[in-house]
Amino acid sequence: MNSAEIYWLWAGLGSLGLATLLAVRGVARGRLPEKPVLICLATAVALLAMAIAVRWLRLGHGPFVNLFEYVLSQLFSLGFVFTIAYWRFPALRPSAAVVLPLIWLLLGFWMLTLEPKASHLPATFENYWLWAHVAVGKIFLGMNLVAVGLAGVIMLRHAPVAARWFSTMSDDGDLDRLAWGFMMAAFIFHSLMLIAGAVWAQDAWGRYWAWDPLETSAFITWLAMGLALHARLTWRVPVWLSCVAVFVVFALAFTTFFGIPFLSETAHKGAV
């Protein structure tokens, strides 16, 4: 590992790690150091952005091709969206103790195992609709992650210890509604992701939708969100079930982003 972006990446992960430690320790002690966590988060996001920028300049293309680039850019985008949410919605700040360890479990440790191999950008990827598709997709997953953090807090509060940790947050009903506010926003960005992806696919492969494995998985995720939203309108969905729905949508979305492209050879042809 001797590529220049690695130093920025390590620095970014270090700052993210510090934010995680501060958040977990602070919540466990009943006093979250909100500003230091925010500063560490913002620093981590800036450093990860530098890692992406340095790599972009080195290779001449964005982080769209190999696993190293996927995970790096996702770390940045999830961090970015959560930092904005943390900054603008003080009510959810203690959920950092759930979200940040989750980011580490899902992506952070994985990132440490990946080599920054150079990648070749397929000609069909040189399309602004791809940028739009990727950008709104990342915002969608970020919004979903914020909701997961809130749902995680609600579920964790069933344990007496964790109930104390998160005692300063609003009651479960309020947090559930806030989580589903973010899910609603995520639904909009997911819809935009499907639209931008369809335009890109039309340009790149001459078809806007072909039910390939990735498209199918993305559509199932969209449908799952629609089902959950309709269920909340139709029945009195208990809060715990509502939280499970948030987790399920996130699991589907994460599988779409990080499972299908690497499991199926026929997922978006040329994408991997």
């Binding site: 603008r88 919605f89 003080p90 009510a91 959810l92 005692s167 300063t168 947050m169 609003s170 009651d171 309020d174 509604r177 806030l178 589903w180 506010g181 973010f182 899910m183 609603m184 939203l229 909340r232 309108l233």
Partner: peptide
């Protein structure tokens, strides 16, 4: 838009009016 909503400990914390929506 942002507004103030009560937290459990009685302090008032800024949050979104999303909290006030009965259902999505």
């Amino acid at each position: 838009q942002h507004r103030e909503v009560p937290a459990r400990d009685g302090r008032r914390r800024a949050s979104a009016s999303m909290l006030e929506t009965a259902s999505v």
